[in-house]
């Protein structure tokens, strides 16, 4: 069984970590980032920003780049994407 079980609901998702037993909510930006990482093995920062801008997943407030960095950190902490 894969470590992470993911269920996508529209632009959001929930993830079950079979190692820890924890369940996580992925808002649209986190899901879009995760999908981008799965579609491109090692996306550049520019690739990521381009894809995410097309998907219109940014929240008002922090600049897009900061939102991406913050969300990538969170995904790495959850080990949903690898550390670079």
């Amino acid at each position: 069984m894969a470590r992470f079980q993911i269920k996508i609901f529209g632009s959001e998702a929930v993830v079950f970590d079979t190692d820890s037993g924890d369940t996580h909510y992925l808002p649209p930006l986190a899901l879009a980032l995760l999908q981008t990482y799965r579609e491109h093995s090692r996306p550049s920062h520019d690739d990521i920003l381009r894809v995410l801008t097309e998907r219109l997943v940014f929240e008002p407030g922090l600049p897009p780049k900061a939102q991406v960095n913050q969300t990538l950190d969170e995904l790495r902490k959850l080990e949903l994407i690898g550390r670079q």
Partner: peptide, 23 residues
């Protein structure tokens, strides 16, 4: 729907007990 699932998981009596099956 995703946030509804999270609420139900937190308010289920045996979600943790069931693990992946509960998910």
């Amino acid at each position: 729907k995703a946030q509804t699932f999270m609420f139900l998981a937190q308010n289920a009596f045996n979600y943790s007990h069931l693990g992946a099956e509960g998910f």
